[in-house]
Design a protein around this nucleic acid. Structure first.
Lengths: 293, 293
DNA sequence: TCACCTTTTGAAAGGTATTTTCAGGGTGGT
DNA sequence: ACCACCCTGAAAATACCTTTCAAAAGGTGA
């Protein structure tokens, strides 16, 4: 059952996959957790102009067994918020914001995004994902555009602890790579939308060849999930005109990648630690002599 | 209806006036609010070896209309307590940390890093940097390893708003690119250490050819600063064995990159906004058909 | 445009959880 | 020992939550 703190993020993440009336319920719940917690199913249904059934459906979608449990989570969330840690609602970044404001808002937004992702991350899935990576014979990471950069980040890290990882840059290469995978190998797909065909394809191929597959996506219900043994959900910050969701998903993707990396490094510590130091050692001469003082 | 926080006190105050079985219930509830909140009346009655009626009576005595409401209050209380003793997870990430702790610590560390960078960022320098980029004829971004990924991120963003930007992947290419720059062009160097020769070199060349030069570095006093017209300082999180400083500098570098991007987008809004939408538009067909709903 | 199919939705039936009732049983006082 | 009182839990009654199902809405292809 999801942690209460993750609720706002979850609503944002899942809203696109909700029907109109479910969205109304989800929105009401996210807007006023305390108020909603005070209502019965019937009350909340009336408030949102929907039916009890819809309220229950929404609760289910948000990951609770039923409304009763959602209601408890809401009460908890309200208490948390009241306890001071109010998750500061920042205004969107506007075209005429002065730079200091932009800096502050961006930092705040990204921090929020980190908190949301951390709260919503399914640690059981993460655990399995880490286990798969730690024991992998070979790792492929698929991603395109901004997600490709995240993928490369993961690959760079994994290489440093002695694993064999690749992040093919183009979709054809990705598919030809995927064909080589088999049981014991791991394929990771990174896509915010969950429906980038160029990323789904190679993951599907890897999946069908018996590799263990991971998806890092903002849409756990997207097509990509069909071919993923483990799904790690990223939550994205509120989008604004200058900063579309796809662009801000990077922060949470990187957090997930870091979690994967640390997890794997822990589990392969004997080999990972020396490999890490060795790689930093090796880079030393690529630096100018340390300036005095 | 009493505030959840007052519950423990209320139990103590009212205990003397309670009957034996009610005391058992009250005590259970005060001892483990979270656990009790997870139970139904029947469950709590069984746990305390009493009956449902007694549980309800106890709830009444504590000032709630019934058990349902006591239960909500318990959930809230549990959340408050959890939030209260959550504060600093600032310890280093250890080899034997369980994954949930790793996730929390990483998120917390990166958030801290964002806050530090935002606080330390020199907005005057940022302002000049943005102005230079917004009016640039051509932009080169130099970085290697993890910093190269950050550079590519910047380039991807700038391309989307119609600017001409490149992030040469290897040092030779970078230098040959740099030679082509002149006044009106901008070169950006990204290096955490501030003394990565492969990145300093191209920036120096660009500087000497009259381009406006920017450095995004964690060491504003490093050698790189000599060739930079504007220096943007990144601060990195505390390092630990599994997560060396160089690896965690990424977060602050990306924040700086985002600030630059938004700044530029604001200043070229007329062309940036349509260009942005157009680029998202263009990517639409690279997606699988939207799942129904 | 229409016919057809799929998805979404709420009304009402069906189940649980909570609340109330009530009678048995205990306790203390005489 | 007997009575009056209150405590207690089983079971009935109710409120609340969940499920089912048929109708409505929305989309698709002819």
């Amino acid at each position: 059952m999801p942690a209460p703190g993750a609720l706002a993020a979850k609503v944002r993440t899942l809203a696109p996959s909700m029907t109109r009336s479910m969205q109304r319920v989800a929105e009401a719940v996210a807007r006023d957790p305390a108020g909603s917690a005070a209502l019965t199913v019937t009350g909340l249904a009336e408030l949102t102009g929907t039916s009890e059934a819809t309220v229950v459906r929404t609760a289910r979608l948000l990951g609770y067994p039923g409304y009763r449990d959602l209601r408890l989570a809401l009460a908890a969330l309200a208490a948390e918020q009241a306890a001071g840690r109010a998750p500061a609602v920042t205004a969107d970044i506007a075209v005429d914001d002065p730079l200091p404001a932009v800096v502050a808002k961006l930092a705040q937004e990204e921090a929020q995004c980190l908190a949301d992702t951390a709260a919503a991350l399914d640690t059981a899935q993460l655990e399995s994902a880490v286990a798969a990576l730690a024991g992998a014979r070979r790792i492929d990471v698929y991603g395109i555009g901004a997600s490709h950069l995240v993928g490369q980040d993961l690959v760079q890290k994994l290489l440093r602890i002695g694993l064999i990882a690749h992040a093919p840059a183009d979709p054809h290469l990705a598919v030809t790579n995927a064909v080589q995978l088999r049981a014991g190998d791991v394929a990771v797909a990174i896509t915010h939308s969950g429906r980038t065909t160029d990323v789904i394809e190679p993951l599907r191929v890897a999946f069908e060849h018996g590799a263990t597959t991971l998806a890092i996506t903002g849409r756990p219900d997207g097509e990509i999930a069909q071919y993923a043994d483990h799904v790690l959900t990223t939550s994205s910050a509120r989008e604004s005109e200058l900063r579309p969701a796809a662009m801000s998903s990077r922060t949470s993707q990187l957090l997930v990648v870091d979690c994967l990396f640390i997890g794997v490094a822990q589990r392969t510590y004997e080999t990972a630690a020396p490999a890490l130091s060795a790689s930093y050692e090796a880079l030393a001469h690529r630096h100018a002599p340390r300036s005095p003082r």
